[in-house]
């Protein structure tokens, strides 16, 4: 868990900083944070956007987490249940990191691609290494 833990801390922290400074919105984690911080404004969150909507992503992730936990418990493999839930969270974090990338790309595309392209590629490789157990 060497590189992946660094990635999780940096990505989660950056996502929270960008969320609280008002630079990202509409990503799955920021929607969950909106619900957590202001549950009374839940009906206002439903805004139509192009591409895959965040509601679809959240529903997919909810189903995936439930399925992983149920299958893990039925088979009797608790590790699989934990692994599935963490894998879905990493997927969710990837979407949020794309939100941070988009916030930087909106102000300067060249700098954003120069900074974030290697980081995003390395995130994929780090995930693969983590799944193979050689991180």
């Amino acid at each position: 868990m060497g590189k992946l833990s660094t990635y999780i801390i940096v990505m989660s922290g950056l996502m929270l900083l960008f969320y609280f400074t008002g630079l990202t919105s509409g990503t799955p984690n920021s929607t969950l944070l909106d619900l957590l911080l202001a549950p009374e404004s839940m009906p206002e969150l439903d805004e139509p956007e192009g591409g895959i909507s965040k509601e679809a992503i959240l529903v997919f992730e909810g189903v995936a987490i439930t399925a992983a936990i149920v299958v893990g418990i039925v088979i009797g493999n608790v590790e699989l249940a934990l692994f599935g839930a963490f894998a879905v969270y990493f997927f969710n974090l990837g979407w949020d990191f794309l939100g941070v990338f988009n916030a930087v790309r909106a102000v300067n595309p060249v700098f954003a691609i120069l900074i974030f392209a290697p980081i995003l590629l390395l995130y994929v490789i780090t995930m693969l290494e983590w799944m193979r157990g050689i991180d």
């Binding site: 801390i9 950056l14 941070v100 916030a103 930087v104």
Partner: peptide
């Protein structure tokens, strides 16, 4: 502002 948040966040959390 975006680059200030990005650089401070990356450095601090790293």
């Amino acid at each position: 502002w975006v680059f200030i948040v990005l650089s401070v966040g990356t450095m601090f959390y790293y």
